[in-house]
């Protein structure tokens, strides 16, 4: 069953008087529980595609269905609810809340969902265990390494049991060993939590972790090379 269905997606960005097309008509279906990588050179449109799927950016044309809903015609409040309830994000630069410690960062989305403090802490405790940061629970992000921060970001992305986790170049700011461990962790979480993972990269070493690879170039999906 497809959790994401994209038909004829176009995204243009105005740049002064010029319109720059970032996506020129993308068709893509993503199956539930997939572990998919979007690859392509810089400026190919992979981040834009992830942003539109993640309801962070809007489409200029085309249809995007996430779960049961077409996200192209929703209000800001509805879109935000989808982001909170259906999607988890892992950013390139981790983007943790600096004033909250590790455990608080992880439980933050649950508190936004109005879960009880005890429930949120219980779920966060489980995930901090799974990402191997139990002893850092009371640390602030500034006290962690890049790899540790990304682990926190992964735990935070998964804490709400989202249908989809989107990761935009999650290993770009990490050394190769830490990057590999992060991808291992994501893959393990994909298997453990049955969550759909879509991550973008232009690092060929990352591709071996993907079960499905989508190549994008000049705003169009070229072909799907076989996973390594």
């Amino acid at each position: 069953m497809n959790i994401i269905e994209i038909k004829g997606l176009k995204k243009d960005y105005p740049l002064g008087d010029t319109i720059v097309p970032a996506l020129r008509g993308v068709d893509l279906d993503v199956a539930e529980g997939d572990f998919m990588s979007i690859i392509g050179p810089s400026g190919s449109g992979k981040t834009t595609l992830l942003n539109v799927i993640g309801c962070i950016d809007s489409a200029t044309a085309g249809a995007v269905r996430v779960g049961e809903r077409d996200i192209t015609a929703l209000t800001d409040r509805q879109i935000t609810e989808i982001r909170l309830n259906k999607i988890g994000f892992i950013f390139q630069t981790f983007n943790l809340i600096p004033v909250l410690d590790v455990i608080e960062n992880i439980e933050f989305p649950l508190l936004l969902m109005k879960s009880s403090a005890a429930e949120a802490r219980g779920r966060a405790d489980k995930l901090i265990e799974e990402v191997g940061l139990r002893e850092y629970a009371a640390h602030r992000p500034a006290e962690l390494s890049g790899g540790q921060r990304q682990r926190v970001a992964i735990a935070r992305a998964l804490v709400t049991n989202p249908d989809i986790v989107l990761a935009d170049e999650p290993t770009a700011n990490l050394d190769s060993v830490t990057g590999a461990s992060i991808l291992e962790l994501m893959r393990r979480m994909n298997e453990l939590e049955k969550t759909t993972f879509i991550f973008s990269t232009h690092d060929a070493n990352v591709l071996k972790y993907a079960r499905r690879i989508v190549k994008i170039k000049d705003g169009l999906i070229e072909k799907e090379p076989a996973p390594a």
């Binding site: 993640g54 962070i56 409040r77 935000t80 609810e81 982001r83 909170l84 309830n85 988890g88 994000f89 950013f91 983007n95 809340i97 933050f108 989305p109 936004l112 969902m113 935070r156 992305a157 709400t160």
Partner: peptide, 8 residues
């Protein structure tokens, strides 16, 4: 980021 992860 807060908005991205669901803060209204």
């Amino acid at each position: 980021m807060m908005r991205a992860i669901g803060a209204q």
